[in-house]
Simulated assay, not measured.
Amino acid sequence: MIAGHRGAASLAPENTLSAFKKALQSGAKWIELDTQLSADKIPVIFHDETVDRCTNGEGLVADFTFSQLQALDTGSWFSAVFIGEQIISLEQTLLFFMENDLNMNLEIKVHHSEQAEPLVDAVSKVLAKVNFPNEKLIISSFSELALAHCHRVMPSIRLGYITDKNPLIKLEKLKPLNLYSVHIDHKILEETMAKKVTDSGLKLIIWTLNDVTQADKFRSWGVEMIITDKPDVFVKA
C-alpha cells in the first residue's frame, strides 16, 4: 500500500487540500497527515510547530486562532500556482476523505507533552461528530502520552507508534496500548529488525521513502505501507 506523505508533498504544498487532491489523483488510497491545535482548540492540519516555513506568517501555530490561521497563505512558499491556499481544519479534511473514499493515517503532532491529551480529546470529538469510519483510519504519533490517551478515549481506533529509533526496546512497554502498527524511518530499518516487528504481529509502515527502486526490497521485508512524497510515482511502480 502507498500513502501520500502530507498529501503529495512533491506535487503541492504539504498538508493542504491541493496536496490531498494530488494524492487522490495519483491513485493513492491512503494519505498521511498531521494535526495539532489552534489557539481556540480546533484541530488543524499542519506539521511544524511554527507557521514560518510553510506560510507567509511567523509564530507558533498554537498562538493563532483558526480564523487567523486561515488568513495566512500556505501555498505561495511552494509555488505561485498555489497562492491563496489555506490551512484547513481536521473536520474539513475528514469530510473530504469521506467524500472521496480515502483512508487516513493521522499523526497526532505533539510538540510539548502538555499538548497531548487536549489534542487527542479534540480529535476524538471531531471524529465522533463526522462519524469517520474506524476501518479507514490509523492514528499515529511519536508521543507515547498521546497514544496512551488515544487508547483510553478511543479504544477501538487502530494505533501506530512512530519512531526514528529501533522500536524493539519500546514494544514491550507499549503492549498495553494494543498497537496496530509501527511506523519506522526507512533509513534505520534493517531486515532483522523488520522481521522482529512483523513476527510480533504488528504491521510495518515506513516513512518517507522517495526512491522507488527500493520499494521491492522493503516489501520483501514485510513492509505493508510505504509513506512517500511521490505517490504518483510509487502507485505506478
Rank of each mutant, 00 (worst) to 15 (best):
L94H: 07
G222N: 09
A62P: 00
L106S: 04
E117A: 02
C54D: 11
Q70C: 13
I138T: 07
S89V: 00
L106F: 00
C150F: 00
A39E: 14
F20H: 15
I88Q: 09
P13G: 03
A8P: 01
N210I: 07
L171S: 10
V235F: 04
S200K: 14
D63I: 10
W77M: 05
R219F: 09
L145E: 12
I227E: 04
H111W: 10
P231C: 07
K41Y: 15
P118L: 02
T163C: 08
R53I: 02
S140R: 01
H151R: 15
F132W: 04
A122K: 12
A8H: 05
F66A: 13
G201S: 15
T50Q: 01
K203L: 13
I157D: 06
R53T: 02
A39I: 13
M104W: 12
V153E: 00
L202D: 00
V61W: 01
E91D: 11
L145W: 02
E85S: 10
L24M: 12
H149R: 12
T192M: 04
A12H: 11
I227A: 02
L168F: 14
H47S: 07
F78T: 00
K29Y: 06
K187M: 11
P13N: 07
Q36F: 06
D229R: 10
I169V: 15
E117N: 09
F96M: 06
G59D: 04
S89Q: 04
F96S: 01
K236C: 11
L119V: 05
E144R: 12
C54T: 14
F78E: 05
D52F: 06
L37I: 12
K170V: 03
T213I: 11
N178S: 15
F78G: 03
S156F: 13
K236E: 10
G222K: 07
L24V: 08
D73R: 12
